[in-house]
Simulated scan of single mutants.
Amino acid sequence: MNQQLLMIEDDARLAHMVCEYLGQSGYTVAHAGDGQSGLTALQNKPPHLVILDLMLPDMDGLEVCRRIRALPGALAATPVLMLTAKGDPMDRIIGLEMGADDYLPKPFEPRELLARIRAVLRRHVEGAQPVASSVLRFGSLEIDRDARVVSVSGQPCELTSYQFDLLVALAERAGRVLTRDQIMEAVRGRELDAFDRSIDVHMGRIRAAIEMDAKDPKRILTVRGVGYVFARQQD
């Protein structure tokens, strides 16, 4: 199958070289020169993988990656390989925390880029699992997205509609650290408070409903200075 890639890169010369090289390797590569046009292209024709430059003229690659991870459905899971001219290891750490699947510093060998693309796509395919039902299960916790019911060990949990949406947003992205902005974007369409602390209040109430001990949570964990993560392994 011919796999579609999207390269978001403002260096037209580099983008042309990469697109030509990857085209010879069997990929079809679309190119966007800035973050906003890249996000538009991604939604109009979803690619199998995004090659994303960190330094863009309208917004940085971290912001583009954050917006991709806040998109609905399968778009949010689009693999992202981030490119950067920066050598600071902290940039790599932040990029991975924001949801990038891999990270390649410039300058790079085209063959290494190709190898990393293949590795990321292989991991993505191996990790993909068909959705068997509307129910998300994590140990004794069950979240029925269609019925909008949450239960622990068969006992229903009392959550408001908004809290249910917040819980689903986290659970569907289990294992991924989400900022408060990402969480709010994931439930966009609802009337949201503008203050970060409103999210914290709701998370406290969700924990009280689904955790064995809300003061020592095992399901919804706080990542200090960043946001929250829904733990994959529970019970």
Rank of each mutant, 00 (worst) to 15 (best):
T160V: 07
L166C: 04
L114E: 12
S134V: 06
L221E: 09
L170S: 02
V29F: 01
F230P: 04
A119Q: 15
M55A: 01
P47D: 03
S37N: 11
D213L: 04
L39D: 05
M55R: 00
L5H: 00
D10E: 01
A231C: 10
D101S: 14
Q43N: 09
S153Q: 15
D101M: 12
E97F: 15
I220K: 01
A85Y: 00
L49M: 11
G23E: 04
K106S: 00
R173N: 14
L221T: 13
C157S: 15
D10M: 00
Q233K: 08
V223N: 15
A12S: 10
G33P: 01
G225A: 03
L49K: 04
S25I: 06
I68S: 14
M184C: 12
L42M: 12
G225V: 03
L6T: 01
Q3M: 10
Q234M: 12
L178W: 11
A147F: 15
L62W: 11
K45E: 10
K215P: 06
C65N: 13
R207F: 06
A231D: 10
Q233Y: 10
Q3P: 04
V64T: 04
A132D: 12
G38T: 05
M59L: 02
Q233W: 11
L83C: 04
D216K: 13
D58E: 00
P105E: 02
E142V: 09
L192P: 01
L14M: 06
Y103E: 09
V226F: 15
I220M: 08
P107K: 00
L104T: 05
G61V: 02
L14Y: 02
S140M: 11
I8M: 05
T78K: 07
V229I: 10
G175F: 10
T40R: 14
M98K: 15
R197K: 07
F164P: 02
F138R: 05
D196F: 01
Q4K: 04
L54F: 07
A76K: 08
I93N: 07
R66W: 13
L54K: 02
A85F: 00
C19R: 11
Q129A: 12
L114H: 07
F138Y: 09
A115S: 10
L71D: 07
V29E: 01
N44K: 11
G154L: 09
L14R: 04
T179F: 06
V201F: 15
